[in-house]
Design a binder for these strands. Structure first.
Lengths: 336, 336
DNA sequence: TTCCTCCATCGAAGCGCTTCGACACCCATC
DNA sequence: GATGGGTGTCGAAGCGCTTCGATGGAGGAA
């Protein structure tokens, strides 16, 4: 193994000079730096990660806790992880993978042993048991999602309220006057992550603002539920021409159900959704949708951590603006 | 931060005794060990990962390189990663996540900097550019999948040849005499990973052994291709009653296509497949299938690495036996 | 010219752990 | 009662790096 003293000898300088040339923490003359860099390349030197971590008390590793619970869309988790790794590398950090199964113990372990400098926690629940731990650890963390009490914690997420609004605004802009939200399963609102409720708030607010007739229907994820809810909607709101869906597994069955009731999409009924792009695109009628910006969320989370590691203060909450992608499921309302 | 000297003082022993009590590398009296362990718990001691890595030249971290290429089934990658992490933890190791994007440079970096002790590489190609690198690095590695030249490398995979055989044996066992294999896209066979070819070999061998009439059809992944291949199959083999499918995206469209040609599954046509269980189960007619045993593959890979790290020699090739799960797509052949 | 400042570099200490050789002690052996 | 071989524990060295204070030399001010 080639070490810093080897490089120093080869370049005719002291080890500390090599270190400073590498870190830039003290001025080194251009000429010396060149010589050092040449030696490093020539000898193929790589600083020993452990030694560096010991001396500097920085491991340059981030922990990423990924969720395993059923009902989580796997490709989304993966996109997120990839984004985190890629962004971390851009900041000269690596990523250690933890499963949620390891839970609090895992977080405490990697933090206390100085294996990682900071951590990112996905799939945060309203009343997440890890909150007190994250607050008490002496290492910075960022959460994806918002718990009920986020004081002193840094959170990043899509602005689901705005996403709900956007779905309605789009429908309103196309002339629709009677709309409905088919939401997530009831249990999600109860146990759940806050985002489902935020979508409802946004939906309702935007509908009111636009003076639309509207209703909200939490809805189980079983495809069979689709037919029932479609029928119910048409019974209660016969003039319905716009539907927003925030329920991934129900999206396709719901469209089928409407068409079987004689409503064509988008001819008779326009549909907007909040769901991953790939799902929106793979439905028989590609759906105009607001996507979860996984890549940007991951990048933001890492960048916030980097700032915190750099001693800067960061905002407690970062909400990313939703972006709506127009697809085939929306059209102007037919003349009445 | 509480360190080993704190524990030593608290327990009334020397630091080296604490170290040996922890590692078990030298005999420590039962009584002393108890005392040390009590002190550790009392003080909440965790060995500093960097210091340990520096002194012992073991980081207790494994690298996992995950593929990003399109056409890879994301949930499978995820299952695999989770299995690797879980098994690694059981052996007191952590997992560092690398993306294939970082490529050879990433592997070299984490190996040379002693960030990781060993690595697992997924999605290995027949002529994988990383092969020479893996051979030259001084750290052990395990590959998931088999390259063309595996000398000196350790590989783990499903026995795809046996999987191909199993699909045929099942059909033969049900009395089917005329069978076909709908394979992966042609480009997979060309550029590709070896497994596609192995499936063909197994399929053909088993068909011959059972004296079945058989044919093999590599087939693009576009759903439109399904109708074409179904029609072609019936034209060329009018007596066809058994089909094996090794082409995930085509599975469902293919069943649709057969049914539109008037063949009921499994009434007129039995289908077996090699695909993830979740896909096999989510098709309209749940498909009798051989699954990729991701959990076991991940666990095996880690365990092989642990053995190598322990200085033991391990077999170059580990092939896991396929297991077929019976579902609704297979039935005995109708009386002629 | 002398003094002071600033820049570039050096030397040494130390990060927290593991590990090796040494050593004391106990019990069995002759 | 002296010798030998284990056990269990200790002390010190050292892993490879960063960082702090010190130093030498160049350049500007007096």
């Amino acid at each position: 193994m080639v070490k810093i003293t080897d490089v120093a000898r080869h370049a005719g300088v002291s080890p500390s000079t090599v270190s400073y040339a590498l870190s830039g923490k003290r001025p080194i003359s251009e000429e010396t730096r060149q010589r050092v860099e040449a030696s490093i390349r020539k000898l193929g030197y790589r600083p020993h990660a452990g030694a560096r971590a010991l001396a500097s008390s920085r491991s340059n590793v981030l922990a990423l806790v990924i969720p395993l619970r059923t009902g989580i869309h796997v490709p989304v988790v993966m996109q997120f992880a990839v984004s985190v790794v890629t962004t971390a590398r851009r900041h000269d950090h690596d990523v250690l993978l933890l499963t949620q199964e390891e839970g609090e113990e895992g977080l405490r372990r990697v933090a206390d042993s100085a294996l990682v400098d900071a951590m990112i926690v996905m799939d945060v629940q309203l009343d997440d048991p890890r909150l007190p731990l994250l607050r008490s650890l002496d290492r910075p963390s960022v959460m994806i999602g918002f718990p009920a009490e986020a004081d002193g914690l840094t959170c990043v997420d899509l602005d689901f309220r705005a996403a709900g609004e956007l779905c309605v605004e789009r429908l309103a802009g196309l002339g629709h006057r009677v709309v409905a939200l088919v939401g997530s399963p009831p249990e999600v609102y109860v146990r759940g992550t806050a985002f489902a409720q935020r979508v409802v708030q946004g939906f309702t607010a935007a509908a009111d603002r636009n003076k639309l007739a509207s209703s909200v229907h939490p809805c189980g994820a079983a495809p069979a539920a689709a037919a029932a809810v479609a029928e119910q909607l048409l019974r209660e709101q016969p003039a319905l021409t716009g539907v927003a869906v925030h329920n991934e597994p129900l999206l396709e069955p719901l469209i089928d159900a409407f068409e079987q009731l004689g409503l064509r999409v988008p001819g008779d009924l326009s549909i907007t959704a909040i769901c991953p792009d790939e799902l929106a695109e793979s439905v028989r009628v590609p759906v105009t949708s607001v996507a979860l910006p996984t890549a940007e969320l991951g990048a933001r989370a890492v960048e916030l951590l980097m700032k915190k590691l750099g001693g800067k203060t960061v905002p407690d909450a970062t909400l990313l603006s939703p972006r709506l992608t127009e697809r085939a499921s929306t059209a102007p309302r037919n003349a009445p």
